[in-house]
Amino acid sequence: MTEPDEGMTLIVKTIGRLVLNFILLFGIYIILYGHLTPGGGFPGGVIVATGFILLMLSFGRRIALKKFGDLAASLLDNLGALAFLIVAFLGFVGGYFFLNFIDRGTPFDLFSAGTLPLSNIAIGLKVSASLYGVFVALAIFGKAIVGGDRTGKGKAEGEPANSQEQKG
């Protein structure tokens, strides 16, 4: 058996192990179907992040950080933001920043709506990594002030474009 500080009881660990995959799957579903159903990058990203937070709560920090370390979180966080900007820059292919340059396809198909799914994936990546990063920073290190706020801002940068496209 494990030491006392390594996570919670066996019951929690077993249930957590069972539920975790479904939580992640549901989060990814919400991200991928963001342009068709309620949801999108931000809610899906939050769900994915809660999955990892559950992992950390039930199994303790050592195992969770081995699966998804804080360095990886900050890297993915920045990559997500960059991916979003790249999608925006690719709009210059059609002549405009943020232009939806891919063929929109038929409505209600999974592969439709042009760049929207791509930006949703980027935002989902960003939000899940940064929320997990905030949790790690606040709960464990208690010191990473700069880490904590940087993530918040990145999302603020990612989201307006999201709302802008919903507006359009």
């Binding site: 709009g91 232009l99 802008q164 496209e165 507006k167 359009g168």
Partner: peptide
């Protein structure tokens, strides 16, 4: 015009 949306609708 961001994304070529005309003014009252787009940013």
């Amino acid at each position: 015009r961001m994304g070529n949306w005309p003014p009252p609708w787009g940013i």
